[in-house]
Computed example of a mutant assay.
Amino acid sequence: MAQSRAARLVPVVDMAEKAEREAARMLGRCQTQLGQVENQLNELHRYRGDYQKQLVNQGQQGVSGQWLINYQRFLSQLETAVAQQQRNVDFHRENLRKARDAWQACYTRLEGLRKLVQRYIEEARAADEKREQKQLDELAARLAARRTD
């Protein structure tokens, strides 16, 4: 009886394994995407730092008003790009958190199902052993009864 319960759960476990693998793949994709957008943000920060150093270097040699206006305009655009990329990073971090939570839920469900199947198998084994022991006891009792006759 318990063995058949375990056998009935095999398709459910298979589906849970498939869902867990898909959630793990999604988690991996989200981690990769986050890494890419973080790298892009770091590049923007590096570029902004380099560009700001250019002002210092250029400023020591003297700059025109027009150069300074263009510099400020470009720096403003660069700041906008940094802020937009930061929002992109935040978005991907949230996606990663959701993907990790989804994978964790799938994994927990899968492990619970595996434990349940194992428990059913152990119950079936114990029931089989109990049934065998009962049969052996009955056989021993019959043999003992025949010897006394």
Rank of each mutant, 00 (worst) to 15 (best):
G62Q: 08
L75D: 11
G65N: 10
T32C: 00
R73G: 01
R109I: 02
L27M: 12
D90R: 11
G35A: 12
Q52K: 09
R100G: 04
G112K: 09
Q72V: 08
V63E: 13
Q58P: 00
L75E: 12
A83W: 01
Q31E: 15
Y47K: 10
H92N: 07
T80E: 13
L27D: 02
S76D: 11
A99V: 07
Y120T: 03
A99K: 03
T32K: 13
Q104Y: 03
G65C: 00
M26C: 04
L34A: 04
D101H: 09
G59I: 03
R97Q: 14
L34M: 05
N42L: 12
Q31R: 15
Q72T: 09
T80A: 10
Q61W: 01
Q40D: 12
M26K: 15
Y120K: 07
Q52G: 01
G65H: 06
R109F: 01
N42Y: 00
V117Y: 07
A83G: 00
Q54I: 03
Q77L: 13
D50F: 04
F91M: 14
M26R: 15
E94T: 09
N95V: 00
G62Y: 05
V63W: 11
N95S: 10
V82H: 06
Q54L: 13
G65I: 06
T108H: 07
H92K: 12
A81S: 15
R25S: 12
Q61T: 09
R109M: 03
E94A: 10
E38D: 01
K53A: 10
L44E: 02
Q54A: 12
D50E: 13
G28W: 04
R46L: 05
N70D: 11
W103C: 08
V63L: 15
R114T: 09
L113G: 03
Q85K: 15
Y71A: 05
H45L: 13
A83S: 12
A99D: 05
L75C: 05
T108Q: 11
D90N: 13
A99L: 04
G35C: 09
Q72N: 14
W103R: 12
R48G: 08
Q36N: 02
L34Y: 08
K53V: 08
D50A: 04
R109C: 02
H45S: 03
L110D: 01
N57C: 05
Q104R: 15
R114N: 13
D101C: 01
L113E: 06
N39E: 15
W67G: 02
R25A: 11
Y71V: 07
D50C: 00
G59C: 09
D50K: 06
T32L: 09
L116D: 08
R119E: 14
W103P: 00
T108I: 04
V37A: 11
G59D: 06
K98F: 00
H92F: 05
R48D: 03
L96R: 14
L68W: 01
R119M: 13
K53N: 11
R46E: 06
D101T: 12
E111K: 14
W67K: 03
A99M: 04
A105Y: 01
R73Y: 08
V37N: 08
Q118E: 14
N95R: 12
W67V: 02
G62W: 05
N88E: 12
L55S: 03
V89C: 10
